[in-house]
Design a protein around this nucleic acid. Structure first.
Lengths: 335, 335
DNA sequence: ATGAAAGCGCTAACAT
DNA sequence: ATGTTAGCGCTTTCAT
């Protein structure tokens, strides 16, 4: 039942080249033959085979996307943007969940290369030197989304984390807070967690507040549970705290949950500011004040940048930094 | 720099069939030639071309996934399950976001067919007769995830919505509630919204409570904002309500938000039970009591079922119903 | 305006 | 154990 170009040619009484022509340069074929061929196509329910085409054109209009955890809202919002950009530029997205697992990532990369993807979007993780080696071997355009590399020249789209964190901390300070804690990502992550820490500390310094990382900062994972845990530890180290900067919305919600369970109300007793502005930031009680990054846009732009690379047009800037935005809701109060 | 089987053959001083053999049946080639070929592959950084293979095998090890909105946690959790099953069975997932837009869906389906996917996962939307026509033309195995069709014989994986809703309502009733409202999906959706409504009503009837759809049920979208709106309307129609069944977690959170803003506390004044058990159900204050559906598992099983179909093994049951689970947290109180 | 034939990178008979 | 060749479905010269 699967029909191919030959079947169409036979039914329409023309050669396969004519069929090919009506698909790719219809104006070059006589109107009546064209119609005849189109009717044959319809009758046979013909669909061209992209594998055969890809073999010839040496491009597939498929992009690979490597994501650590799709069930995380952070990534799914970015992915949404990527998908829309992909549709717009007639690409398909092949999705690979890496679970932050290197072996799995290498495996995925291999599959993607075999499938002859035209380009790759790599998200969030830092580009370690061995990753870079793999990328080079891939021989295809790559764009980093929500991450970047200062060591290597790989195009990227992300927010300025240092400045965004600075703004978060300053928001707290401007609301009159002086004893401010931070719930931060892993110390080993110097593409996201460290710049955020630095931005936080810079704001404190600029406003003549003391900084003591040991007592003010709690490191940990980015999840709700991690935020919950971290809030507990922070409170123990730094009991008279009046505000907390949690550098992801999930962490912030975890922190709020901890505070709630321990009889502190937000923002009356303690203010909390988050980072990301995921959709859930509007769903919490109190609604979360946070520094928003335009995740959808990051995904969208990453794919468009990739498209430019593939088309060999001007790539524009190597590292694109998109604007963050302070979204003031209810979790930060004046003191 | 892109090397192919010919390059490898030349470098290893063998024919291309020998190279092909070391890839597909290495035991059939002399150990020393094999090593020679493998070295050549490594040196040339050779990767087989899946397009060429697919052309011959007539299967691509790619699956299409149609999803209305990936940035929705509901879908991203399912997608996560699908992706893991896909990895396990050596498939790639080609992701298409349909935005609930029919034209876009048809376009995606067309692209997917051209790319010769081995199978398709279709999520959530009801299968309208015209969709079914399109599916038939596709000529490939299809599995429905979190939806099903009683009209057409298409394999599916989902929860028993009627019973799940029954359990939700009964939970409320067993906590002593008698004046219970429901926030429901669209009346036109008879694959999900209607069964849930029926389950709700059945529970009321079984427990000898009056049922009056007009005053007790508010229809609307599945989002947070919709839940917020609906809660307002419901309260106006049915002021002395003591409990609400919101048939999605997002709606439930919206309802809670409305109640909170209007001076009613949950669960002291009004109890709320949700549906889905998304990760955010644990993040709210109060933590949400809800009827959980195993979304990850639904995705996982859908892909495995698709694999069975593709392998032409026994499909097992046509319609698989997975277990839901009542997750009691803090948003429902005894009365 | 249309057709014949080569070739994209690979596998699978069929030789040897 | 290895090589030769046809062909998967298509595009693209090159003829006519």
């Amino acid at each position: 039942m699967e029909s191919n170009i030959k079947d169409v040619a036979r039914l329409a009484n023309v050669s396969i080249s004519t069929v090919s022509r009506v698909m790719n340069m219809p104006e070059k074929v006589a109107i009546e033959t064209r119609v005849k061929v189109q009717e044959a196509m319809k009758e046979l329910n013909y669909t061209p085979n992209a594998l055969a085409r890809g073999l010839i054109y040496k491009r597939t209009k498929s992009l690979g996307v490597l994501i650590p955890d799709i069930s995380n809202m952070f990534y799914s919002e970015m992915l949404h943007g990527m998908e829309h950009a992909a549709q717009r530029h007639h690409y398909n997205l092949i999705l690979c969940n890496t679970d932050n697992n290197k072996a799995r990532m290498l495996e995925s990369l291999n599959m993607l290369k075999e499938k002859q993807i035209d380009g790759l979007v790599f998200t969030s993780e830092p580009v370690y030197p061995d990753y870079y080696e793999v990328f080079k071997k891939l021989q295809i355009p790559i764009v980093l989304a929500a991450t970047h590399s200062l060591e290597f020249d790989i195009p990227s789209v992300k927010v300025n984390d240092e400045q965004a964190s600075f703004d978060a901390a300053e928001c707290l300070i401007k609301h009159g807070h002086r004893r401010i804690g931070m719930i931060c990502g892993s110390i080993t992550d110097n593409v996201t967690a460290m710049p955020r820490l630095q931005g936080f500390l810079r704001a404190l310094r600029v406003h003549d507040l003391e900084t003591d990382v040991d007592s003010q900062v709690q490191f940990g994972g980015y999840k709700f549970e991690d935020g919950y845990e971290a809030m507990g530890q922070l409170l123990r180290k730094f009991p008279d705290i009046t505000a907390v900067f949690a550098s992801s919305d999930e962490r912030a919600l975890g922190a709020i949950s901890y505070l709630h369970e321990h009889g502190k109300s937000v923002p009356e007793d303690i203010s909390v500011i988050g980072f990301d502005n995921l959709r859930l930031a509007q769903m919490s009680i109190p609604k979360l004040t946070t520094v928003g990054q335009p995740l959808y846009q990051i995904g969208y732009l990453a794919v468009e940048k990739l498209d430019h690379l593939i088309q060999n047009e001007h790539v524009g800037e190597l590292r694109t930094y998109v604007r963050h935005e302070l979204v003031e809701r209810q979790s930060v109060a004046r003191r």
